[in-house]
């Protein structure tokens, strides 16, 4: 399998990247870690004429804290996230999720920004971004803007990014330790057949639950969240709330899992994730 030919650019600054994207318009695709785009190109499912490789744009990498928010550069790899002691302390959902993605090799190369912007319906980062109420910091020809995670994943493999825009960073609030990511894998690919990210905000007495792998886009399980509002997280209440995990979702169905089974996994994994998160204090 060989990709179609393309021109390759490797800007060293975001400004340069944006100007390349502006110049090449629809012909250009942004290359991050490449673990989604390169296989698609080899299968000729994607044939961009121009690749803009962001790997040397230093300002897109790294983890920092600014104005009470954790800022993760879009080009930060899964492996860097997995091994960050800063994140382990400040936003442990990220360090819990990262090692569950792919394998060592994929984590070394794949990036959080690439995963979010690719918006595979079975990817692991989108539900995490949703559960954390992340903000996507986007750079474009007319400057920067923020997109709430809730409005970012618009359809299967579609995001709110506009042509010429680049996902620059992901901003999240620090959380306590009461978080969990529970995933059932599609056995062959390692993607999520059903992944559930949970953040329990004890101060606000609120639970955030997001699910990937079972529908065209990841989504917040708002019925579960509402069912848990205002009361203690007893096993009974969690179990009851989890029953509506997949309610209303347009379920995916394929040889790896029927709609029935995915809906069932959603219930199980939502319950397990909330139980696990709430046990972490």
């Amino acid at each position: 399998m060989i990709s179609a030919p393309f021109d390759y650019h490797r800007p060293s600054s975001l400004a340069e990247a944006l100007s390349l994207l502006a110049r090449h318009g629809d012909d250009a695709r942004v290359l991050a870690g490449g673990h989604s785009l390169v296989p698609a190109m080899k299968l000729r499912l994607a044939e961009p004429r121009v690749l803009v490789d962001l790997s040397r744009v230093a300002e897109l990498r790294g983890i920092s804290e600014k104005d009470g928010r954790i800022v993760i550069g879009a080009m930060t790899t899964h492996a860097e996230l997995a091994s960050s002691s800063f994140l382990a302390a400040k936003c442990p959902l990220l360090t819990e999720t990262a090692p569950q993605i792919g394998d060592i090799q994929v984590r070394n190369k794949g990036t959080i920004g690439g995963s979010l912007a690719h918006a595979d319906p079975a990817a692991d980062w989108p539900p995490v971004a949703l559960a954390l109420d992340a903000e996507m910091e986007v750079a474009g020809p007319s400057g920067s803007r923020m997109i709430a995670a809730a409005g970012f994943f618009t359809d299967i493999m579609q995001t709110a990014l506009r042509p010429g825009e680049v996902l620059r960073a992901i901003r999240v609030r620090p959380t306590g330790p009461s978080v969990a990511y529970v995933k059932t894998e599609q056995k062959a690919s390692g993607f999520a057949l059903c992944g559930v990210a949970v953040v329990v905000d004890r101060a606000a007495n609120r639970v955030s639950v997001a699910i990937t792998g079972i529908a065209a886009t990841p989504f917040r399980a708002s019925q579960v969240e509402r069912a848990l509002e205002g009361g203690p997280l007893t096993a009974e209440r969690i179990g009851e709330a989890a029953r509506v995990a997949a309610a209303g979702a347009q379920l995916l169905s394929d040889m790896h899992g029927s709609a029935d089974y995915r809906a069932h996994l959603a219930q199980v994994n939502v319950r397990r994730a909330i139980v696990r998160a709430s046990a972490r204090t």
Binding site: M1, H35, I104, K109
Partner: peptide, 26 residues
């Protein structure tokens, strides 16, 4: 050829990567 089997694994800067899913230019 689809980044599953790992037969193509090499290291870049001490990190294992799948060389069938990387362009040489990268």
């Amino acid at each position: 050829e689809t980044s599953i089997c790992g037969a193509c694994t090499v290291q870049i800067g001490g990190k294992a990567v799948k060389s069938c899913t990387l362009f040489a230019v990268q």
